[in-house]
Design a protein around this nucleic acid. Structure first.
Lengths: 369, 369
DNA sequence: GCTAGCAGTCGAGCCCCGAGAGTGCTAAAT
DNA sequence: ATTTAGCACTCTCGGGGCTCGACTGCTAGC
């Protein structure tokens, strides 16, 4: 593949949309170069074919001839924005060009009416819990964008507990924690030998009372405190509960949602089987998705775009991610995003992700109060 | 595609392994034809290339010349077991041939030792709930077989409730039902206006007591009964709880687990993008997977195999499914399976699915007591 | 009934060729 | 100093034609 000219520096500008703020290292583009570059990227996104100077002369509306544009294109290629699949073909954008294109996008693209209504309709339906909402959200996002979608549930670590119980299930004891988002976490509690049902009941009632309104770490502290004063029978149980709480806090694997993976199977850009397989593998690995989305929204922006090699996962270097955090109150609690080819329709993806993130925030906020 | 000769009758023998029992409609094959057919299918599964008479003469060990085998092959093709991609190529199996091959498989293929140990190890780890187990199970199955895996959770309809509660979450009330499998179902209860916290607490405690040990429909009856006698404030709430219970009973969409989809991306048999996309679309549609697995295990066998067009979903006609129910006690409560190309390694898939279903049954049984 | 042998069929790979698309460069024009 | 017209050059893509080789089906003889 003639990809050798793609920009090496993985993170010239790691964040999403820097809307006008220049990276100091990047040479400024002349008006005309910028216009040409934008037109080229736009057309390439539309057609997927390398763009010729002639085509740009006609569509970009600069009133200069194709020969002039050819000179500019040569310069842009020199600067690392473009490459030619082969000597006598048009030019295609590198990651750097997409970055430029995305950074220059007008501030707030709007969703089309029909789509906006679909978003509103989805979130208007009564949904019981964040889990249920997110499952639907990935489907919604994929339907809107025709790309694969991912979502991260709020980390329970920061959420308030509305209920905690111990339940006997089969031979084991299950610690059940319900959060203000409607999320439910469960953990097996290693059972101390020969525990009576009454003890269990009593402890369960005790923690239900004691944990209400606390966070996981708060609850854990309380459990340990109470364990100290308690009679031996309860003591062990409480300590085990504290352990389970810690485990819940640490684990996050279950909180990745995935949807619409069938949409990107037919992407021309993922023609090579191997590319597609590696992307799917990564998407199935919760830790990978977690890492990717975390990094995507690390910088505090409403929408982040991660283009090609900006992605921390090499498997994703031929893909782009458009991601946004969603909030409950003022703090970001989770992330949603879409995954498509670097040649994705950024305008559509950004507006869809933005709209969904907004409504999702409201929905989660309504739940969590 | 030269697939026109594939058997038309979608369900000559709908079930999995009939191990020797003949379908009355199917003409009996001579010893030699059977041996040739088996050898051919085996080789085709191994190589993916049409098999020649010469190759069979060498490997099948029948002591006859390729010319003789050619005659037999012509007959088998006539009977619908084989087809030629083109005139001068070897033969490939039709669905009917795979069906024959699978039906003739020796009774209980064993898993290789290392794999068996992986299965045992997975189920030896303490797992909190059926959900958690199944999530891991699909991963395990896919790792073993290199195909995509699906699993159906036990329908909560038949399970016993170990706990039911009402919890205030944000502005809504959440009905939380915990089953003996560790599964948790939650449903928003349409809130009657201006309900006091004490009422809620009281009702919650009441249903916790009253529902313990019942099934969903049992609990629903109890709720409605109690509603009759109750004071108006509680009455409405109880009726709404009954409604929510009915909804839980009816819904099953959330109970489909999917894993290892990246494994089948590179399947040569799904070379055509469209084929792969349709398969993925179907796998993402819970209702479709539900229908497929239901039909697969409809006949009471330890392992069911659904080959190509035997599948009720046309999207899956180029794929095969190996499925098995898992049990808690004597009743089948859920299903697991793998999805691969019709040319899949049935022996490996069957032994993996069987082994996993067995251990899974034990694990679920241990949970549900 | 089996098999050796042979003619016939078809796909895969290769080369060649021409058409077409698009570039880079040069030299003239502004 | 730009811009542009013009032209030579490069490379892909598709088709046609070719050979090679892998199989088959069939026939005739064992």
């Amino acid at each position: 593949m003639a990809r050798s000219k793609v920009s090496q520096d993985r993170r010239a500008e790691p964040t999403g949309r820097s809307a006008g703020a220049e990276a100091p290292t990047r040479r400024e583009l002349s008006e005309r170069k910028a216009a040409i570059l934008r037109a080229l990227v736009q057309q390439y996104i539309r057609t997927g074919e390398p763009v010729s100077s002639e085509a740009l002369a006609q569509t970009a509306g600069l009133g200069v001839s194709s020969a002039t544009i050819r000179n500019e294109l040569a310069a842009l290629e020199e600067m690392g924005y473009l490459f030619q699949p082969h000597t006598s073909s048009g030019r295609a954008p590198t990651d750097l060009a997409y970055r430029f294109f995305v950074d220059m996008l007008p501030a707030r693209p709007r969703l089309r009416d029909a789509e906006w209504r679909a978003v509103v309709a989805f979130f208007d339906a009564a949904l019981a819990s964040v889990d249920e909402i997110l499952r639907g959200t990935t489907k919604l996002l994929s339907r809107l964008t025709h790309y694969a979608s991912v979502a991260l549930a709020p980390s329970p670590a920061a959420r308030a507990i509305v209920r905690a119980e111990l339940v006997r299930v089969g031979p084991g004891i299950l610690l059940l924690v319900v959060f203000d988002t409607g999320q439910v976490e469960r953990r097996l509690v290693e059972l101390p030998p020969a525990r009576g049902e009454e003890d269990l009941e009593r402890t369960s009632r005790a923690i239900t009372e004691a944990f209400r309104g606390l966070t996981l770490s708060g609850a854990r502290k309380v459990a340990l405190e109470r364990a100290k004063g308690a009679e031996p029978a309860q003591r062990l149980l409480l300590e085990r509960v504290a352990e389970a709480l810690a485990q819940i806090e640490a684990s996050q694997a279950e909180h990745v949602y995935l949807g619409g993976v069938s949409y990107i199977v037919s992407e021309e850009a993922f023609r090579r089987r191997e590319t597609l397989q590696r992307i799917y593998e990564a998407l199935e690995r919760e830790s990978a998705v977690l890492r990717m989305l975390r990094e995507a929204v690390a910088v505090d922006r409403p929408i982040s775009v991660m283009i090609g090699r900006e992605n921390p996962l090499p498997e994703m270097w031929e893909a782009s991610v458009v991601a946004a955090p969603y909030r409950a109150g003022s703090e970001a609690v989770g992330t949603i995003g879409v995954v498509g080819p670097t040649r994705m329709d950024y305008v559509a993806a950004i507006s869809a992700v933005r709209a969904v993130a907004e409504r999702l925030s409201r929905a989660v906020e309504a739940l969590a109060g």
